[in-house]
Design a protein around this nucleic acid. Structure first.
Lengths: 143, 143
DNA sequence: ACTTTTACTTGTACTATACAACTATATATA
DNA sequence: TATATATAGTTGTATAGTACAAGTAAAAGT
């Protein structure tokens, strides 16, 4: 492996990270009960409150049809609830249910524990800085 | 959004990053011509030389059948070539072709440019540190 | 009232993946 | 050496996650 400049290293490692994360999502070491997409949807509703399909699609930059199905799947599992907007009959509003909150917290806790153990040798400073750099990168990601 | 500790922030941002990267892979802003899986496979062969299906599957921690299909698809596009191992008739060895190398370089360049522009406000020190931290994290990811 | 727009759902298709069944070859053993 | 077992890979089938296109129902515009 030849010398890499910083950008090359970052690109290399991020691509590798996605590969490994996707692997873990499918593996027997899979964390928690929720699919990645379900975890993100619940997290979104938990953090920002009730939302309609279109808002969710925009938040994730995914097609409305994709979110329509994901929401319907979570509704089926009673992790989110659907209510109609009284002022607009076309709109469904989704909100996280108590069961959904519970499930989200359980899964989040498991994910945190994994990162905790993965980064157990890191100093607090390193972890803080890493988090901040990731946040900056993600903010720059929006195009 | 309540105060997050470092681990929470890291978990949050990495999950978000995967979401956005997967979005970009499907969006019209998709970088390059190669699927993410194809890019990784070509990169692996380019970096480590010829390999058989089993080795590739192990390198990515994916099922042999998955790599068998991915390799067959790239072989079809003449981006990799198949040759048989003379000492073991069961084995196919795959290697990247000149066309594959070309395609890989093109795609890699586009990816690098995207990261370059995303991180254009970062100092060299920040970029270097970020790359190193990512590498450390990925190394810890192997379980 | 009619047309157009909007919000969502549903049909269809494709990538990425796993597992199971199968084929061909190699290795071990009786 | 003949047979059994193990290994490498391919192919059939299934599922998650996604997009696009067609369809439905409601709202807004003319």
């Amino acid at each position: 492996m030849q010398e890499k400049n910083s950008i090359e290293l970052i690109e290399y490692e991020l691509t590798t990270f996605i590969r490994r994360a996707v692997y873990l999502d499918n593996s027997e070491n899979k964390i928690g009960n929720l699919e990645r997409s379900a975890y993100l949807l619940l997290r979104q509703l938990d953090e920002f409150g009730p939302a309609r399909v279109k808002e969710l699609a925009e938040a994730f930059k995914l097609d409305i049809s994709t979110l329509s199905r994901q929401a319907a799947a979570l509704e089926n599992k009673k992790l989110i609830s659907r209510s109609s907007d009284p002022s607009d009959g076309r709109v469904s509003l989704f909100d996280i249910t108590p069961g959904g909150k519970q499930m989200l917290q359980t899964d989040k806790q498991m994910r945190l524990e994994r990162y905790h153990s993965m980064l157990k040798d890191w100093s607090n400073e390193e972890k803080e800085l890493f988090g901040k750099l990731l946040m900056r990168m993600n903010d720059a990601f929006i195009d």
